[in-house]
């Protein structure tokens, strides 16, 4: 699904570039120059993020995850799975099958929900990047609240879906 979206994005970008180029050459070149600068600016942080994720995935594998947040892990399990979600940067295409596997193996609904919520909304690893674009205060507040609400909503989901 994501791959298709990427190809569509490339198509759209290409068309936009051509239209832009036909309308105004210098503006288009300026935007490409800016894009390149943005790219160079973010590259070091980006490589660092990927190196960190590579290391984390070596340490944490899916078996460990299944072991730690089983259905009887209770509040500790919820906390642990929320932290797992915060500190990992796994594409959802990988995360959902893991989550489904967890549920099949008797993991709690609340634990699974909090994992998905924090995984998608809270990013410790991307925090430096977020600070760069949105400023420190928004970055910290947004991640803090997202974490807090992920815990609360997981409990609600757990209660509703029992």
């Amino acid at each position: 699904m994501n791959a298709v979206f990427t190809y569509i994005l490339y198509g759209v970008t290409f068309v936009l570039l051509i239209v832009s180029f036909l309308k105004d050459k210098s503006k288009t070149l300026l935007s490409l120059k800016k894009a390149w600068k943005m790219f160079i600016n973010i590259l070091p942080q980006f490589i660092a993020i990927l190196m960190l994720v590579g290391l984390l995935l070596e340490v944490i594998n899916s078996e460990t995850i299944q072991h730690v947040i089983g259905s009887k892990s209770g509040i500790a399990g919820i906390l642990i799975s929320s932290l797992l979600g915060v500190f990992t940067l796994v594409p959802v295409l990988i995360a959902f099958p893991i989550a489904a596997e967890l549920l099949n193996n008797g993991a709690g609904i609340a634990q699974t929900a909090v994992f998905i919520s924090t995984l998608t909304m809270v990013g410790f690893i991307t925090l430096p990047m977020e600070t760069k674009y949105l400023g420190k205060k928004i970055a910290l507040l947004r991640n803090g609240f997202a974490f807090l609400f992920a815990l609360i909503s997981a409990c609600i989901i757990g209660v509703i879906l029992v």
């Binding site: 936009l16 503006k27 943005m38």
Partner: peptide, 13 residues
């Protein structure tokens, strides 16, 4: 890559 290009086209236009 396309994101950066789109974002900056947006920025310019």
């Amino acid at each position: 890559m396309p994101i950066f290009i789109c974002v900056n086209l947006m920025d310019v236009w």
